[in-house]
Design a binder for these strands. Structure first.
Lengths: 332, 332
DNA sequence: CTGAAAGCGCTTACAG
DNA sequence: CTGAAAGCGCTTACAG
């Protein structure tokens, strides 16, 4: 059916070895031979059989991405960044998403074994033991947004700490003397870093102000509950910083219902800059994360690890975030 | 390095043929032999080499997805549906996204040749000629949201017509005697079907009312411009139906600026039910599309086409949409 | 039921 | 510079 290297060889009256060399850019082929082979291959629409090539080269030219059940925009931005970088390098992208728990992730990771040259892993529940059990040692991997501290694995993180620190400072600078914080899930690495950023900024820039943390879990409902709690008794803080945008949106609803107006009575800020952030009323001040860049960088790191297996890794830089000022903090 | 079928065979004191048969569930193996082989394979953590298997079986157990530059939620929902269905069938998913034009899509489609058993294609610019030039005849493919009418290709569409028809009827039923429409890009299939749904519903249910169409291009800005045009002179229609949510959001902003209040002065509706729709003020009445189902169904169709290549296809059903009533049409 | 052997389509030492 | 040959790790007729 399909045209193989033998068809090209026959047509060009050379051996399959020469076709292989010519098409793979080896030097030891006459220019004339190479040209003849190249044009015949093109005319025949020859495409090397990837499985046959993989079998002998031990390379699949494919990167696997293991992703959890992700909220819309984050997921597509991440894939976009990974995909763009992969294409630029001629790599393919095998995706496995929507993993709710560790078992599903383990099964998916194993299923990819042998089909990929490297892995990108974003999964809140992945730790060193999980990786040792499910990832072949020889497979380079980059973990995204992971608390993992083992030098054995490469980790690439968003600068959650810096972003939260900068936002807290922004709110204080804007004249809001007290800033409360709505935290995320306790076991979530991003959430922990953001809370730390808040706490340390408060200590640094408003040492006399009270640090107030209300618990949330990243859901809109938990933000709503936090907002109700904060509004109770009419003694809300001057500003509220939620550890993510969805909670900020929930909190905004609670404030509005309680008759508090944002930003006049209380300023409000979130984290992530999800698309919704600019469409709520008032538009939400937040911290923007360059998610596509995260994906792009991760792909680059794993590609380099594949090319140079024994190379000493450079320490992974965290990805900078930026404060986006909108109306909810009195910005405009 | 890695453990191969020969290692398992040696350990089990059988031929590699028996290992292959035992592990692939062929009947011609003693239960006792199969058990021994299975347990040894498990102990050795044997995973069949996928490239070797592909080389001989001519199957990759992989489906390719070719996607354009997509807006956040749609993309992730689609992938979610595809991924879930693929996993249920033990298929892998190779993704190539963010294709701006036909050339990029062609390159990506070609690059997948030989790496996938079937394709899912969502791309506004793909037509029959493109497919004949870039897709091997032997590769089953399902096109999503495509205007393609060739019986040669399998197409799966959202019921844009039905959704728009139902929404128009809803607005008329709610007592809004005149309904204007903001259209999408002229060359966009979804947009065309939605406009047709609007027009035919108007003819059917409000034959005396004027059909009014303002041009848009699916962007928020074009919705804003359309909103300004409609508000001009204070003689806006009683209801406006935008061909997608982003335009409805833009239109809402224009109305608010013009001092028109929604839904009291004018009702407003969109299409897609993007996440933003419920967070604007007032929340947007819209048409919901089950995007994950679209992905799931598409995967099922291509999987069946792979399993039974010569089977007569059943006609593809269009995927039903549903009207979601919120405050912008006076719903609550 | 089981094994020896061929072969899938490539790449790459090894000779010349 | 070029070719014959081995071999990557599987599956599957073909014998027995």
């Amino acid at each position: 059916m399909a045209v193989t290297i033998r068809d090209v060889a026959r047509e060009a009256r050379v051996s399959v070895a020469s076709v292989s060399r010519a098409l793979n850019g080896h030097t030891s082929v006459t220019d004339e031979t190479r040209q003849r082979i190249t044009s015949i291959a093109a005319r025949l629409r020859y495409v090397p059989h990837s499985a046959a090539r993989s079998l002998i080269t031990k390379r699949t030219q494919t990167i696997g991405a293991l992703l959890p059940d992700l909220y819309g925009e984050f997921f597509s931005e991440l894939i976009r960044g990974i995909d763009l970088a992969a294409r630029a390098r001629g790599l393919h992208l095998l995706v496995s998403s929507s993993h709710g728990d560790t078992d599903e992730a383990a099964t998916a990771l194993r299923a990819m074994q042998g089909r990929v040259d490297g892995m990108l892993i974003l999964s809140p529940h992945v730790d060193a033991a999980f990786l040792r059990a499910n990832l072949p040692e020889s497979t380079p991997a980059v973990l995204l947004n992971s608390a993992l501290k083992s030098p054995q694995f490469d980790v690439l993180n968003i600068d959650n700490y810096g972003g939260a620190h900068a936002m807290t400072r922004h709110l204080l600078d804007a004249g809001h003397t007290s800033v409360a914080f709505i935290s995320g899930p306790e076991d979530n690495f991003d959430a922990q870093q953001r809370e730390r950023g808040y706490r340390e900024a408060m200590t640094a820039f408003a040492p006399k102000a009270a640090v107030k943390v209300v618990k949330g879990d990243f859901s809109e409902d938990s933000g709503y509950a936090a907002g109700r709690a904060l509004a109770k008794g009419g003694k809300s803080p001057r500003a509220v910083f939620a550890a993510n945008d969805m909670m900020a949106v929930g909190c905004l609803r609670a404030f509005t219902e309680a008759g508090l107006s944002v930003p006049q009575d209380v300023a409000l800020a979130g984290f992530d800059d999800i698309p919704i952030a600019r469409y709520v009323t008032p538009a939400l001040t937040t911290v923007r994360v360059r998610i596509a860049d995260l994906g792009r960088n991760a792909l680059e790191r794993v590609a380099i690890a594949i090319e140079k297996p024994n190379q000493q890794r450079r320490a992974a830089p965290t990805l900078a975030c930026e404060v986006v000022v909108r109306a909810s903090s009195g910005g405009h």
